[in-house]
Amino acid sequence: MSVPRYWRETKYRYRLIGQMCAQCGNAGFPRSGVCSACGSVDLEEVKLAETGHVVTWTVVRNPPAGYMEYAPYLVALVELDDGVRVLSQLVDIEPIKVKTGMRVEAAFRRVKVDGGSGIIEYGYKFRPLIE
């Protein structure tokens, strides 16, 4: 991945910034330039909730190029407390202990060491919430 391409996304990946529709209030992630609920392009950036719950999950055992070092790893569809859904790796937990519905929080982690341009990519992963 090229440096500018990585750099364009850092704000959203590092801080979990989504978009909110100024017309109907629908929030979404990632930003897309149009409200998926009402079609409005009157959008604002919004900081998303950093806690939520697991909707569904899997264990990736045969990873794509660049992800070998973490395999096998958990991937979950997380619904944040503001209702927005995010796809993410799930870390700091053994697969056998994961349960649908469990509470999780966003964490800042290394995601990938890029082969082509040597960039070390960071971003969000989710981990169990200790309440």
Partner: peptide, 27 residues
Amino acid sequence: YSILAMAEDQEYTAYTGVTNTGLNALI
């Protein structure tokens, strides 16, 4: 596996390391 995942958004879906089969597994 990478090519199959290129059907999905590279910035926010493939970025998580999920594979095509992984997405199927979620549903």
